[in-house]
């Protein structure tokens, strides 16, 4: 926008993200389609890359809706500047199912089987935190699941079904990747 102070050095910069195994080169700057320095990763994923499965709810880092996995860790994409993500590997909700077959990840299937959502707005974020958890700890206890998800706001109260679903997905045989 017009009030932005231009920095010629920045305008020429390009950053590289790997999102759901796909490489993206994004120009930094304030031209249309470029990433502005103040753009959050949540904004870039949704508005620039069209990956609208990542949700923004509070936009203040207090509700977990925008959670994605970056370099193996769950993070809040609304509190992350895209410009600082150069070289990052990011997984969003769109990257969870098998890209070739469309087969749901066992966690996704367990959420479907357990009706582990009501309105579903918080579900993508919850699934990403859950994925980050089971990647570290393939057989978490209920307590570990609850604490891994402790930053997720679910106002419908699907907490019980979610914990059941994660337990189901992690106690049956199957690949959690």
């Amino acid at each position: 926008m017009n009030t932005r102070q231009n920095d010629p050095e920045q305008e020429r910069r390009t950053i590289h993200l790997k999102v759901n195994d796909k490489d993206y080169a994004l120009a930094i700057g304030d031209t249309v389609g470029a990433v502005a320095p103040s753009d959050t990763l949540a904004h870039t994923l949704r508005e620039t890359l069209g990956l609208t499965g990542t949700k923004i709810s509070c936009d203040q880092g207090s509700c977990g809706a925008c959670t994605v996995i970056m370099n193996g860790k769950s993070i809040l994409s609304c509190m992350t500047l895209t410009i600082e993500c150069d070289g990052a590997r990011i997984i969003t909700i769109e990257g969870l199912a098998d890209p070739a077959t469309g087969q749901l990840h066992p966690l996704q299937q367990a959420f479907v089987d357990n009706s582990a959502f009501q309105c579903g707005f918080c579900t993508p974020g919850i699934l990403m935190s859950t994925k980050a958890l089971v990647d570290q700890n393939p057989h978490p206890t209920r307590d570990a699941i609850q604490h891994a998800l402790s930053g997720h706001f679910c106002r419908c109260i699907s907490h019980y079904e979610v914990v059941d679903a994660v337990c189901q997905a992690t106690t049956t045989e199957g690949d959690h990747d």
Binding site: R46, T52, I56, I93, L96, A97, L104, V112, F117, T123
Partner: peptide
């Protein structure tokens, strides 16, 4: 009987179109 919600797949894959989408 428990049957998967019709929109279940869209919700767990991020495909469900909420307002800001």
């Amino acid at each position: 009987k428990d049957t998967a919600r019709k929109d279940a797949r869209d919700i767990v894959t991020g495909k469900a179109r909420f307002f800001d989408d």
